[in-house]
Design a protein around this nucleic acid. Structure first.
Lengths: 190, 190
DNA sequence: TATTTAATTGACCAGTGTTCAATTAATGAG
DNA sequence: CTCATTAATTGAACACTGGTCAATTAAATA
């Protein structure tokens, strides 16, 4: 109808990301569309493009928050004083799986999606996230680990999350399996 | 122009699959479309739907061949008499990675894609393929392995393939890494 | 030869991401 | 207070996507 809404109804990047995240987390990436988002925001789909260059930039806006959350997960394990280094090593891997499976749509965008446009926006974020992980692992191991060993640990965990993301299984449903898988991977360090 | 082509030019399921496979393997799943395929086949896109109910059924037609190929890879390793069981165990995992990375678009459809329609057609194929893998592993191990251990091996390998599929890395480029990753996973068995 | 059947076409539908001229509210200058 | 400028929004339009289906025509059958 009328271009330019009254000031109180004006869109903001934050409001868009907020609703987009909600939509995307509840109904998944494939069903997400700019037009559905616009409907949810009660604006035209064109308006979103004033605030975000394209869909990929919008998703980048969403998952940057999740990269921070993942960093926090690691940090919290590291800073818990009640556990031994061995327990922390276990927990890092276990909590990584928990994060992946309790944030499946986000994990998909963060580490799985092949969309070139989105990968163009991500670029360093997954690398940075991995370095965080690798440093945590290295600092907790009882003996020096080679980069390859740490990488294999990551890939092993990543495979677990990937598989149960695809089958849309909840973390609760695979808790025992997650435990045994982590124990399996850690056995390879001895 | 004219409906119904002369007999010599008629489409067949086989011809469609052949060209579809070519198109899909060279330019990947996201860029694949029924209309591009029709153009390649020099027919209208509607004609394809006479032979295949939908895109998912067509892709099922493509990757069933690849499930067979994967079975053959395992079978060949098992039936090579020159290697010890330990070497065969290594080779099963190594060759699985080779298959995944030399058939990236297919691996994606076989084990990675979330598309509900395609998963509906696949159903048992990935399970059957895994059982093949699991039996091979079990038969080669020097001591009895638990189902969980075999599953962790698979997930560990799957993670490797998944990651390098996403980054579209060739098998050649990660051969040494594949070797060390397999060795890492096998260490967890002792 | 006439009739039925099988295969193909292309218009059409509903959906996607993206662009952009037109429009209008808010803002700042005189 | 008025008027030009700027910022935000709309919705039509474009080029795609997967999928459906009546109309058409070649092939097969009676």
């Amino acid at each position: 109808m009328s271009p330019r809404k009254p000031a109180q109804d004006e869109l903001t990047k934050e409001a868009i990301i907020h609703v987009a995240r909600e939509l995307f987390v509840t109904s998944g990436y494939p069903s997400f569309s700019m037009r559905k988002l616009a409907k949810e925001l009660r604006c035209s789909h064109g308006a979103i493009y004033y605030h975000f260059k394209n869909k990929a930039e919008l998703f980048y806006g969403i998952v940057t928050q999740d990269f921070l959350t993942l960093d926090q997960v690691l940090e919290e394990v590291l800073s818990t004083p009640t556990n031994s280094n061995e327990e922390k090593l276990y927990l890092i891997l276990y909590e990584y799986i928990r994060f992946g499976l309790t944030h499946q749509p986000q994990y998909e965008v963060m580490f799985l999606i092949k969309d070139e446009e989105i990968k163009g926006y991500l670029l360093e974020a997954p690398n940075k996230s991995y370095l965080h992980f690798a440093n945590a692992i290295a600092s907790l191991a009882s003996k020096p680990l080679s980069p390859k060993e740490i990488w294999s640990l990551f890939i092993g965990i990543h495979g677990f999350v990937t598989h149960y993301c695809r089958t849309e299984t909840t973390f609760e449903d695979v808790k025992p399996l997650a435990k045994s898988h982590v124990e399996f991977l850690l056995k390879a360090l001895q």
